[in-house]
């Protein structure tokens, strides 16, 4: 059987909030080491990959690999019933389960709620993501990244990200004119979560749809920092670490000049 007990249900709530607007139905692959989720948006522009290792759970048992086809809207309804400090237990049968049980326990043990979510059949390509050497890595405050994406959305549909030397520039333009926001590599680091790190091998200049970046920033509550990895002619990777026990990575295909 598959059984996973998470001490802080709030983490699962945050994970779901960060994927449900991008991917409606997702395949949750469970094996002895971790739960992984991979899914694409309906227009096949973005892909999300989530990894949550067994050590994130207070108790984790997975006798045989099992894949759970989750409708994220249905799962979200259940997790809305959970407080952040509720314990969440996921349970499913080993072979081709058609449902998954979720049990919510209050911290003081005085309230228990249990739910059964019907699993859905998902016919989607599982994609292999190759190891890539990126030309630039930018690590910054996740809140600052969210702010930049939100602010630039007022000016245009797309953002041009340019990395050169020790700067990263985010630009957007439209009918109202042009907006540029430049962040410079932090000279001194007082607080790591507020500093900007630009690690550049080669200059890059790429353009991406802001609509998707704004969806990615739903993961902001998961981590104080975010890392952007860029290479010319390759998808952007936006990564939020889930403590030391996993990550959410978003991949976004660039827009190219016709």
């Amino acid at each position: 059987m598959f059984e996973a007990k998470l001490q802080q249900g709030g983490l699962l709530k945050k994970i779901l909030e960060s994927v449900k607007d991008l991917v409606v139905d997702g395949l949750w692959d469970c094996d002895g080491a971790a739960i992984t989720l991979q899914g694409m948006d309906s227009s096949h522009v973005a892909l999300v990959e989530m990894l949550l290792r067994a050590e994130a759970f207070e108790h984790y048992r997975c006798d045989r690999n099992v894949t759970l086809g989750m409708n994220h809207n249905h799962l979200s309804k259940i997790l809305k019933c959970a407080n952040n400090d509720d314990i969440v237990i996921l349970k499913a049968a080993d072979q081709n389960p058609d449902s998954c049980s979720l049990i919510l326990e209050s911290k003081n043990g005085e309230k228990t709620s249990d739910f059964v979510v019907s699993l859905v059949r998902i016919d989607t390509d599982q994609l292999g993501i190759p190891e890539t050497e990126y030309s630039a890595h930018v690590k910054m405050s996740s809140g600052e990244f969210q702010r930049i994406c939100r602010d630039l959305s007022q000016f245009g549909d797309a953002v041009q990200i340019t990395c050169s030397k020790q700067d990263v520039k985010f630009s957007s333009s439209g009918e109202t004119g042009k907006a540029n926001i430049t962040l410079t590599h932090s000279a001194t680091v007082d607080k790591e979560e507020e500093s900007v790190t630009v690690d550049l091998k080669e200059p890059v200049d790429l353009t991406f749809a802001l609509r998707f970046l704004n969806l990615f920033t739903k993961a902001t509550p998961i981590s104080d920092t975010v890392t952007l990895s860029l290479s010319q002619e390759a998808p952007l990777v936006v990564e939020y670490k889930i403590g030391d026990s996993g990550h959410i990575r978003y991949f976004l295909a660039p827009k190219i000049q016709e």
């Binding site: 522009v45 390509d125 190759p130 827009k255 016709e258």
Partner: peptide
């Protein structure tokens, strides 16, 4: 005009 690329064109099917 910039054309949006398809994410699947960068990855291989498993």
């Amino acid at each position: 005009f910039r054309q949006q690329q398809d994410i699947r064109s960068f990855f291989t099917r498993k």
